[in-house]
Design a protein around this nucleic acid. Structure first.
Length: 488
RNA sequence: GGGACUGUGGGGUAGCUUGGUCCAUCCUUCGGGGUUCGGGACUCCGAGACGCCAGUUCAAAUCUGGCCAGUCCCA
């Protein structure tokens, strides 16, 4: 049986999508709607419904995050969604940064609460009072925990499905380390974990150390994970922060050292959200619709039996057999036995981003083979010998080519600029020389009408070469590469 | 926070200026029947809407007011 929600055709399925290159946001919104990844009709700004198809993609994404973070020794926890005002206000910078965008719970039934509760915008202030109880000894360290929960931020800007929402599907790791060296190492470890996550999604990215004026409220420093989208824009798809003792001091997270001293822990956090899913759509999608990497695809393989009244062989039993064989090998497979003609199914599964389609007509059914077509257009007759292995191999090739395509786009999105003039009306993300002074940073931001994202951190996917003079003041000493763009 | 605009079946729309020809147009979608099925099938039957509340009027999708929701621009 085919579940109802898998048969339902997207609306206006036959008109062309808006052009991704010139009308990126229109394209993006239209693709999400047609592929039925989200339902925006809920009626509360910034809060959308996860559809069965979108939810499956999200669950698969979460599985990647869980796999990679647990490989680094992090363990899952879950803290409450409500935070007492008294705890929320303990760290000054943090409260300043979030005060304007939190939801308050001020009533219980008909009576006012003595202490109002904050609906978590992030969980530092929920976790850290408890960390103070959990951490007593150096033997309790490091404490590496993560949770995947919904958080709430009263966004004032225009909300967009997956990219800017008020109810955020949030992955957050919080750690306590014994000293700054260990905290620095944890940041590096998070960055490594994210490299693995991004690679699983076939997404190239650049880690960027944010300038001081743009770091996370309460952080000592922040490393953002950025990708280019559209023409001159960027999207922050995650961040890693080192808090040093900024939170452990107000929350009293102390441990006893081997020689009997009480010391504050050094803390780090690592945050990701469904923006990653938005990034997958934004980066890989094309004129036909979504293209899912195999790691997150709700269905990695869609089998289309092509029935015909004339043919003597009914291909459906063969299609089902093949599907269950592939499922047994751990693949996510869907057999589309809907009433539509094959062409309609092809269009829809291309729109919805299935990496691989297997057509089984009378011909294939008779010989035990399958005609395979991947989402990037490679077509091949597989089997009958070693058919399941060939399917797995073709999915692997697909991911490789998807990554290569994304990497080529990524590199083309960055160009160097040597004067402030060049930044005006820029159609790409720009690499610029920067002396690290704030005034020059702001001059660059004004010129590009956007933000100075900061300096690339560690390994980056393009050649940087020697820096030129600072675009702000022209000095040549102490100049670093920085990225200037218009964040989405 | 300030300003502008928009609300018609599940989705997209026509009608609104100049109230009546509208038990509301077309496409898509949805339910049922039949013929089909290797790149968006055809046909027959059926279903489904004027954001909400007041007001003006013989008469309101259309005019007025309030509310709600959404979009865009500016801070």
């Amino acid at each position: 049986m085919i579940p109802l929600y898998e048969r339902r055709l997207p609306h206006r399925a036959m008109a062309d999508l808006p052009d991704k290159g010139t009308a990126f946001m229109e394209w993006y919104l239209e693709v999400l709607e047609r592929a039925a990844l989200t339902d925006k009709r809920y009626g509360v700004k910034g809060m959308n419904v996860w559809t069965p198809y979108g939810f499956r993609a999200r669950r698969n994404l979460d599985a990647v995050l869980v796999r990679e973070i647990e490989a680094t020794g992090s363990v899952p926890v879950e803290f409450p969604a409500l935070i007492p005002q008294t705890e929320f206000q303990k760290e000054k910078e943090h409260i300043k940064g979030f005060d304007a965008q939190v939801y308050w719970v001020t009533k219980g039934g008909a009576s006012d609460l003595d202490i109002p509760l904050v609906l978590r915008p992030t969980s530092e202030t929920a976790m850290y009072p408890v960390f103070a109880l959990w951490v007593r000894s150096h033997k309790d360290l490091p404490l590496n925990v993560y949770q995947i929960v919904n958080t709430f931020r009263y966004e004032t800007k225009t909300t967009r499905p997956f990219l800017r929402v008020r109810e955020i599907h949030f992955f957050e790791e919080h750690t306590c380390q014994s000293d700054e060296a260990a905290a620095t190492a944890r940041v590096a470890s998070n960055l490594q974990a994210f490299r693995a996550m991004a690679r699983a999604l076939d997404l190239p990215f650049v880690p960027v150390r944010r300038p001081d004026w743009d770091k996370f409220p309460g952080a000592f420093y922040s490393i953002a994970l950025d990708i280019p989208v559209g023409q001159s824009r960027t999207l922050q798809i995650g961040s890693i922060h080192n808090y040093r003792e900024n939170f452990s001091k107000p929350y009293g997270i102390l441990f006893e050292t081997p020689d009997g001293q009480q010391r504050l822990v050094h803390q780090t956090t690592f945050g990701l959200s469904e923006r990653l899913l938005g990034a997958v759509v934004a980066v890989h999608g094309d004129a036909k619709g979504v293209v899912f990497p195999t790691a997150v695809a709700p269905y990695q393989v869609v089998v289309v039996p092509i029935v015909s009244a004339q043919a003597t062989t009914d291909p459906r039993p063969a299609a089902r057999t093949l599907a269950s064989e592939l499922t047994r090998r751990g693949l996510r497979v869907f057999v589309d036995e809907g009433e539509e003609r094959p062409g309609a199914k092809y269009y829809r599964w291309e729109l919805r981003g299935a990496p691989l389609r297997l057509d089984i007509g009378a011909r294939e059914a008779a010989q035990g083979s399958a005609t395979a077509v991947d989402r990037l257009g490679t077509k091949r007759l597989l089997g009958p010998e070693g058919l399941p292995e060939a399917v797995v191999a073709m999915l692997g090739e697909f991911d490789t080519r998807l990554y290569e395509r994304a990497l080529a786009q990524f590199r083309a999105a960055f160009t160097k600029a040597t004067t402030l003039e060049e930044l005006k009306g820029s159609t790409t993300v720009r690499l610029v020389g920067w002396c690290t002074q704030e005034t020059c940073g702001h001059a660059i931001e004004t010129a590009i009408d956007g933000a100075l994202l900061g300096t690339p951190e560690g390994e980056v996917p393009f050649e940087l070469g020697p820096t030129g003079p600072c675009l702000g003041c022209g000095r040549t000493e102490g100049v670093v590469w920085a990225i200037a763009a218009q964040p989405l």
